[in-house]
C-alpha cells in the first residue's frame, strides 16, 4: 500500500513519518511513536478513549487519518503530563479515586481540561455534559465529576488570590 510522508509536531517534538493513507492518527501515535497513553476503545468515534489535542482542540484520534494531521501540533497525555499543565487534575483524580482501571483516564483528563479552559466555573451538570462523550465503565462518573469540580474551584480560588 502506498505510503505518504507527513510531518507532525507531537508533544513539542517534530516527527517525519511514512504512513499509509488509511492509517488513523491513534494507530500512528501508538504504533509508530509508542505513545501508548492514547487508548483505543471503539475506533469509530464513540467511546472517547483516544481523545487528544490537535492544534489546541480536543479530537478523537481514531476519527482523524494521520495524513489529515499533516503539519498539526498534537498533544497527548504524555506531553500534558510532562508540561505539568494538568497536574492538578491528575492529583484530583488520584485523590478522589476518579479512575479504576485507568483506561479511559488519559482521554477523560484531556476532555476535563478542555472544559476548564473554556468554562472555568462549570456546575456539576455542565461537567457531566462535557464528559458525556467519554465512556467510563468503572467509576459511574460521580468521582470524576467531583474531581473536576474540585479543580475548577481550586483554580478559581487561586485566580482570585491577589
Amino acid at each position: 500500500m502506498d505510503k505518504k510522508v507527513i510531518t507532525l509536531t507531537v508533544n513539542g517534538e517534530s516527527h517525519r513519518l511514512e504512513v499509509e493513507a488509511r492509517t488513523h492518527l491513534a494507530d500512528v501515535l501508538r504504533d509508530e511513536l509508542a505513545l501508548t497513553g492514547t487508548h483505543i476503545g471503539c475506533e469509530h468515534g464513540v467511546c472517547g478513549a483516544c481523545t487528544i489535542r490537535v492544534d489546541g482542540a480536543i479530537t478523537r484520534a481514531c476519527l482523524l487519518l494521520a495524513v489529515q494531521a499533516e503539519g498539526a501540533m498534537i498533544e497527548t497525555i504524555e506531553g500534558l503530563s510532562e508540561t505539568g499543565e494538568i497536574r492538578d487534575l491528575q492529583d484530583a483524580f488520584r485523590n478522589r479515586n476518579a479512575l479504576q482501571c485507568g483506561y479511559c483516564t488519559p482521554a477523560m483528563l484531556i476532555t476535563a481540561q478542555d472544559l476548564l479552559l473554556h468554562n472555568p466555573t462549570p456546575d456539576r451538570a455542565t461537567i457531566r455534559d462535557h464528559i458525556s462523550g467519554n465512556y467510563c465503565r468503572c467509576t459511574g462518573y460521580q468521582a470524576i465529576v467531583d474531581a473536576v469540580d474540585t479543580v475548577a474551584k481550586a483554580r478559581q480560588a487561586a485566580g482570585e488570590r491577589p
Binding site: 505513545l35 497513553g37 483505543i40 497527548t76 497525555i77 504524555e78 503530563s81 491528575q90 479512575l99 483506561y103
Partner: peptide
C-alpha cells in the same frame, strides 16, 4: 488513602496488553 498504582495511570504510563 490513594491507590499506589494510580500515578502511572493518570500519566498514561500503564501497560495494558494492547500496548
Amino acid at each position: 488513602v490513594p491507590r499506589p498504582n494510580l500515578e502511572r495511570l493518570v500519566e498514561g504510563r500503564g501497560t495494558y496488553v494492547s500496548d
